[in-house]
Amino acid sequence: MHPADRTAIRVLLVDDHEMVLQGLRAMLSRFPDAVTVIGSVSDEAAAVEAVREDQPDIVLCDVRLRHGSGLDVCQAVRAAEPKTKVVFLTVYDDEQYLYQALRAGASGYLLKRVDGHELVRHLESVQLGDVVIDPGLAGRVAATAAHLRQGEFWPGARLGLTQRESEVLALLVGGLSNKAIAARLVVSDDTVKTHLRGLYRKLEVNDRGSAVAVALREGLFH
């Protein structure tokens, strides 16, 4: 297709931080021939309403929102308008979120360190039917896959746990608190809570004690 014949990609922004929305608008406004921002919203209900009314090509959404989850937004948007694609733009460079995003039907997972030219290039790729993943995160996922192919499993891999979730579970079994786990892994308390939610879901439990019981029953740690 000749550039002159190309229609600008119509994008809806979903984020609960006004400064982020303003920054994205300013960034994308530099590429008017490639991208048009048709609106911005901050929650799931508003996103679904906007998608139904305006039918954007792509929804650019944060993975975590103050009053909900971007993953829920993705599923709701895809259910309301299957032709609309969802790309996550977030600060969370965690494989768990990437896997959840792809399972929810996302067409992309990018980190907020991306610059304007890169973002537009990724959106164009998604519009053409590709799935895009931040290069740094994709590299880590590829390395993990290579290790698995070589049989280098970590405890809990067979139950679907990521390597970091397995590390958190091991520290749970050791009796450490969330704060102690955060200090040991050099991450924030919120990051530990995120890993706990992920491993609880995968182990089909609701609390620390039950998670430890599954770990011991399955012989994950000795």
Rank of each mutant, 00 (worst) to 15 (best):
M1H: 09
P3K: 07
A4R: 11
R10V: 11
R10Q: 14
V11C: 12
L13E: 12
D16Q: 05
D16I: 14
V20L: 15
L21N: 15
L21H: 12
G23T: 08
G23C: 11
L24S: 08
R25I: 12
S29D: 08
F31T: 04
P32K: 13
I38E: 14
G39W: 12
V41P: 12
S42M: 06
S42P: 01
D43T: 15
A45H: 12
A46C: 07
V51M: 00
E53F: 13
D54W: 12
D57A: 10
I58M: 03
I58R: 00
I58L: 11
I58Y: 00
V59Q: 01
C61D: 15
V63H: 01
H67Y: 06
H67N: 07
G70E: 04
D72A: 13
D72G: 00
V73F: 02
Q75V: 05
Q75C: 04
Q75E: 09
V77E: 02
A80P: 10
T84N: 00
T84L: 00
K85A: 13
T90W: 13
E95D: 02
E95A: 04
Q100Y: 06
A101L: 02
L102S: 02
R103H: 01
A104L: 03
G105Y: 02
S107M: 07
G108T: 01
L111H: 00
K112N: 04
R113A: 05
G116V: 07
E118V: 01
E118L: 04
H122E: 11
L123P: 00
E124A: 02
Q127G: 01
G129F: 06
D130A: 07
D130Q: 05
G136D: 05
A138L: 09
G139V: 09
G139Y: 07
V141I: 10
A142P: 04
A143W: 10
T144K: 09
Q150L: 09
E152F: 14
E152Q: 15
F153T: 10
W154I: 11
P155S: 03
P155H: 06
L159V: 03
L159S: 02
L161S: 13
L161W: 15
Q163R: 15
S166F: 12
A170Q: 15
L171F: 05
L172K: 14
G174Q: 08
L176F: 14
L176C: 12
S177R: 14
S177L: 11
N178A: 14
I181K: 14
A182G: 13
R184D: 12
R184H: 15
V186F: 08
T191I: 07
V192M: 05
T194W: 07
H195V: 01
G198T: 07
L199T: 05
K202D: 09
D207N: 12
G209H: 08
V212M: 09
A213K: 14
A215W: 05
L216H: 13
R217W: 11
G219F: 08
H222A: 15
